[in-house]
Amino acid sequence: MPILAALARKVVRCGGPGAGAVVKLANNVLCAGHLLLAAEALRLASAGGVSAEAMLTAVNAGSGRSAVTEVNLPRWVLSDAFDSGFSMGLMAKDVALAARLPGAGRLCEDLAAQWSAAAARLGSGEDFNRIVEGSGHE
Rank of each mutant, 00 (worst) to 15 (best):
P2W: 00
P2G: 05
L4T: 01
A6N: 06
R9C: 01
R9D: 04
K10T: 12
V11C: 11
V12H: 13
G15E: 02
G18D: 01
G18E: 03
G20H: 07
G20P: 04
V23T: 15
L25C: 13
A26G: 08
A26W: 01
N27W: 03
N27D: 07
V29S: 07
L30N: 08
C31E: 01
A32D: 09
L37D: 06
L37Q: 05
E40A: 11
A41V: 09
R43H: 04
R43G: 09
L44W: 03
L44T: 05
L44G: 05
G49M: 12
E53W: 12
E53L: 15
A54M: 06
M55D: 06
T57V: 12
T57R: 15
A58G: 09
N60R: 06
A61L: 15
S66A: 12
S66P: 07
S66L: 14
V68C: 13
T69G: 10
N72P: 01
N72D: 09
N72T: 03
P74Y: 10
W76D: 06
V77T: 07
S79P: 08
S79V: 00
F82V: 02
D83H: 11
S84E: 14
S84V: 03
M88R: 02
L90W: 11
A92H: 08
A92G: 09
A92P: 10
D94V: 03
V95P: 14
V95L: 15
A96F: 07
A99G: 13
L101S: 07
A104Q: 06
G105T: 05
G105V: 05
C108S: 13
D110G: 10
D110T: 00
D110E: 07
A112H: 03
A112L: 01
W115E: 02
W115M: 00
S116L: 06
R121Q: 09
R121D: 09
G125M: 02
G125T: 04
E126Y: 01
D127S: 14
D127N: 11
F128M: 10
V132N: 11
E133S: 13
G134F: 03
G134R: 04
G134Q: 04
G134A: 08
